[in-house]
Amino acid sequence: MSKKSKILIILLPIILILAVSVWYLSGQNVAVLQPAGVIGQKERSLIFIALILSAVVVLPVYALTILIAWKYREGNTSAKYTPDWDHSRVLETIWWGIPLIIITILSVITWNSSHALDPYQAIASKVKPIQVQVVALDWKWLFIYPKQHIASVNKFVIPLNTPISFNITSDTVMNSFWLPNLGGQIYAMPGMSTTLHLMANKAGSYYGSSANISGKGFSGMNFTADAVSSNSYNSWISSLAKSKSVLNLNNYNKLALPSTYNRVSYYKNVPDGLFENIIMKYMEPITNGSSI
C-alpha cells in the first residue's frame, strides 16, 4: 500500500464521520450552541473565545507531536540524534511563558464574565422583571408565580424579552435547575433559596431538566419552558387562574409526595408565602418536619 492510500484510508472515515454528524446535528436542538436567550448567547461566545485561545497551545502540540514522532522514529537514521541534550532555557521559557500569557488573558475574561454573567445579578432591561419561584420536588418541578397566585408543574411560560428572576429551592434532596437554551443552571437546595436570572429573545418551547441526581424518579424530572409573546403569556396566566385545582397547603403536601414522570398540571389560588414556608420548614428544630 502506498503512503498516499494509507493516509486516505485514515482520513476518509474521519471526513465521513464529520459529515454525518454535521448533517445529523443540523436537524437537532443543540441547546448550548443554539441559545434563545441573552445569557445563553453570551455564554456561547465565551465558549468560542476560550476555544480559540486554547487552540493557540493545542494546535502546536498536535503538529509538533506528529512531526517529531515522524522525524525522529528509530528507522530514520539520518535524523539528528543528541542523546544528552536535555535542556534549553529559551525553549522552556517559551512553554512556561506562552501558556501563562494565554491563561492570564483567560483569567481576565473569567473574572469579568463571572461578574457580568453572575446568575444572581438582575438583567438590565426597561421591562419589569417577572418573578418565578421554582421548587424541586420528588420528582417534578413546581413553578409558582407569586404575584399572579398561580402555579404549574413541569411546565412554565414566560414572555419574550422580559427578564425572569427565578428563586429556586428544593423540598427534597438537592437538584439542579437547568434550562440550557436560555443559559445555565443553579442548584436547588432544601432550606435555601438560590437565584437565577434569564431572559428569552427567541420564541420556542425549550427542554429543561434536573442536572443533579435526586433518586429513582430523577430521569423523569424534566420540564418545558415556553417563551411566547406577552399577549400569549397574559392569556396563559389568565387561563391558569381558572384552573380546577387549588394549591392550598393540603394539596401542596399531597403534590410533594414522591411520584415519577408527572404530567403537566396547573393550580390557582396559591397562598402568599408558600415558597418561603417551604424553605422555613428546614429551619425548624427537631420536631416533625414532614409537612408544612
Binding site: V32, V61, T65, L106
Partner: peptide, 27 residues
C-alpha cells in the same frame, strides 16, 4: 495520551470559566 489528554484539557479549561460551567456542569 497526548492527543486525547490535550483535547480533554481544553474541555477542562472551558469548564473552569464559571459562566461556561453553568451550561455544562453535570452534563
Amino acid at each position: 495520551f497526548v492527543f486525547l489528554f490535550t483535547m480533554g484539557g481544553v474541555a477542562g479549561v472551558l469548564m473552569a470559566v464559571p459562566p461556561i460551567d453553568f451550561q455544562l456542569h453535570n452534563s
